[in-house]
Design a protein around this nucleic acid. Structure first.
Lengths: 111, 111
DNA sequence: ACAATCCTTGGCGAATTCGCCAAATTTAGA
DNA sequence: TCTAAATTTGGCGAATTCGCCAAGGATTGT
């Protein structure tokens, strides 16, 4: 039986590919976008208004999420609507939430 | 009813806190560590052997995971064993896996 | 054709992340 | 006590990420 290691290129490539997807979610703005898109689809201009950053910044965050395969885009006239295609990304939020909760409980128990 | 935005400091802080935890998992080596610790606990030297990097590098990855509240450490003699305390982190791997699968299917369908 | 709106891309400087080396700390054993 | 092994921390240069500005399409309506 082969021991689990990161020494071979195959295993390394697998973890790198997965890390790339998770990295796409490792940013507050992109987390917010995923959270909002879970309710309904929005165009870039709407998301930009909610986020309060430059349009180009939001557009880049969206391209990044799209490249990761988490959202898809759909052009309607001059606007581009983004849809969430990986609902499992929402569980990241839940997990982060639970970790924060446990951390607080531990801090409380330490007093 | 209040519209969902990132304009106020509270919402921003919430998403930043969650992003910090997800960021802890957004690295191939740290993903590997979490994956391995899900089976059983290991000390730093064992993980270092599996990963094939400098001990200090692995130690820093572990501190980062610990600060995020994803793992805990336990000293036994000269060795420090690390335990996974947030099993929900494993679902990140599953989600990344499914996203990669869907992405491949789309590529296939495009041919 | 022209103007206006929406979006994307390139590029810049600032900030963060990463991995290794060196040094310090802790603990077990001779 | 002295040595060796295990781990952590500080620090360095290289690489990546981030957000804004400026410029360049694309599309709609006049």
């Amino acid at each position: 039986m082969q021991m689990l290691t990161l020494n071979n290129a195959q295993a390394q490539a697998r973890y790198e590919a997965r890390a790339r997807i998770i990295k796409a979610l490792a940013h507050p703005t992109r987390l917010f976008i995923v959270d909002v898109l879970a309710q309904q689809s929005y165009c870039v201009c709407e998301l930009t208004a909610m986020i309060g950053a430059d349009t180009s910044t939001v557009s880049k965050h969206l391209s990044l999420l799209k490249d990761a395969g988490l959202v898809s885009d759909e052009k309607k006239g001059t606007q581009v609507y983004y849809h969430l295609v990986a609902p499992c990304a929402l569980r990241f939020l839940e997990c982060a939430e639970s970790v924060m909760k446990v951390r607080l409980e531990r801090q409380l128990a330490a007093v």
